[in-house]
Design a protein around this nucleic acid. Structure first.
Length: 305
DNA sequence: AGTATTTGACCATC
DNA sequence: GATGGTCAAATACT
C-alpha cells in the first residue's frame, strides 16, 4: 500500500520544515542550508504527489486523491474505469481511447486499466529521477514508432515473475519537447516492492549522499566518523539519517576529481539503470558551497541527452 | 553467476 | 504489408 510511503514522505517533509523553522530563527544560519531544507521539503511534496497521482498503480487508491503535481499531468484512459470528476481534472489533457478500437495491444490488455502520465524533466533533475514512480520496472522492449522521432520503451514490473504483477508502462519522449516524456501505464501493481516491504524507507537526502562521491561527517552522529560513499548502503533507515539540524560538513574526497574514471563509471551506470539513485534533491549545486570550501562540480552528474 | 538491457524476430490486428 | 506489442537470445553489467 502506498499509504506507508506517502506518510514517510510527508513525515520527512514535516521534519525538514521544522528544521527550516529553527534555522530561520537562527540569525547565523547559512542561506545555503536553508535552501537545502526548502528544496528537501519541495522534493518531499513532489514525491508525495507523485505517489498520489500514480494512484492507478495502487488498486486501493481513492479516486479523491490529488491528481496533479509539479512537472506531471495524469490522464486516465480506458472505458472500464469510471472517471471521477475533481477540480484538478481541469488541468489535465484528457485522452480517452475509443473502447471499440481494437489493436493488438488493446485486445491483449482489454481488461486492463490504462492511463497516461506526462513527465517533465526539469533542468535540475535527472531523467531517471523524473521517471521514477517508486516502482521497480524492467525494460523488455524498445520500438521505433511510426512518425515519432524517439523510440518507445516498454517496461514491465520487476516482480512479474515472483509476484505475478502484470503492470506495464510505456515511455516515449515527445517529438516537440525532448524534456517531456509520455508515460502510459497498463494495469495496476499487485506486487509489494522490496523497497516498500523492507520497513526501512529510503530517504531522499540519503539518495543524494549515496551518489555524491565524497566522504561526509555527520556531527549529530556518534563519533563523528567520516562515512565514505560506500558506507551508505541501502539498509539505512530514515531514523538513522543525518540531521540537517547540524551543519553539513563535507570533506573533499580524493576521488572527486572529474578525471577519476571510477567516479565517471559510477555516475554513468546510475544514469542507465531504471533503478538508479541519482542526485535526487531537486535543486542546483551550481553555486553551492559547503563547509571546508568544498564545491560540487554538478556537471558530472547530469547528462540528459 | 545472476540480473538487467538490447535488439531482431515473431505475432496480432488493421 | 504496415504497425505496435511482446518474446527471447545475445550481450552487458555487477
Amino acid at each position: 500500500m502506498d499509504q506507508t510511503r506517502v506518510v514517510t514522505e510527508l513525515t520527512q517533509g514535516k521534519e525538514f520544515a521544522m528544521q527550516l523553522k529553527i534555522h530561520l530563527d537562527n540569525a547565523s544560519s547559512s542561506k545555503e542550508l536553508q535552501h537545502v531544507l526548502i528544496n528537501s521539503i519541495l522534493v518531499s511534496y513532489e514525491k508525495t504527489l507523485s505517489l498520489l497521482t500514480t494512484r492507478g498503480l495502487n488498486p486501493n487508491a481513492s479516486n479523491n486523491e490529488s491528481c496533479s503535481q509539479a512537472g506531471t499531468s495524469t490522464t486516465r484512459i480506458g472505458s472500464q474505469v469510471s472517471f471521477s470528476e475533481s477540480p484538478c481534472n481541469e488541468q489535465v489533457n484528457r485522452e480517452f481511447k475509443d473502447p471499440n478500437h481494437k489493436n493488438s495491444s488493446a485486445k491483449r490488455k482489454s481488461n486492463m486499466e490504462k492511463w497516461k502520465n506526462q513527465v517533465h524533466v526539469k533542468g535540475d533533475m535527472g531523467v531517471e529521477e523524473a521517471l521514477d514512480d517508486g516502482f521497480d520496472w524492467r525494460k523488455y522492449g524498445q520500438k521505433d514508432i511510426f512518425g515519432a522521432k524517439h523510440p518507445r520503451g516498454y517496461y514491465r514490473c520487476t516482480h512479474r515473475q515472483l509476484q505475478g504483477c502484470l503492470a506495464t508502462k510505456q515511455v516515449q519522449k515527445l517529438d516537440e519537447v525532448s524534456s517531456i516524456f509520455d508515460v502510459t501505464y497498463h494495469g495496476s501493481h499487485t506486487c509489494i516492492p522490496e523497497s516498500q516491504s523492507a520497513s526501512t524507507p529510503r530517504n531522499q537526502s540519503l539518495q543524494f549522499f549515496e551518489t555524491v562521491p565524497a566522504s561526509f561527517y555527520f556531527p549529530s552522529s556518534s563519533n563523528n566518523l567520516p562515512l565514505h560513499d560506500n558506507t551508505f548502503d541501502r539498509g539505512l533507515t530514515s531514523s538513522s539519517t543525518f540531521s540537517l539540524e547540524s551543519e553539513l560538513r563535507v570533506e573533499r574526497n580524493r576521488r572527486t576529481t572529474n578525471s577519476d574514471p571510477a567516479l565517471i563509471d559510477h555516475v554513468s551506470a546510475d544514469q542507465t539503470s531504471t533503478k538508479s539513485h541519482t542526485v535526487d534533491v531537486g535543486f542546483s549545486f551550481d553555486q553551492m558551497e559547503f563547509a571546508n570550501g568544498f564545491n560540487f562540480d554538478h556537471s558530472i552528474f547530469y547528462n540528459y541527452e
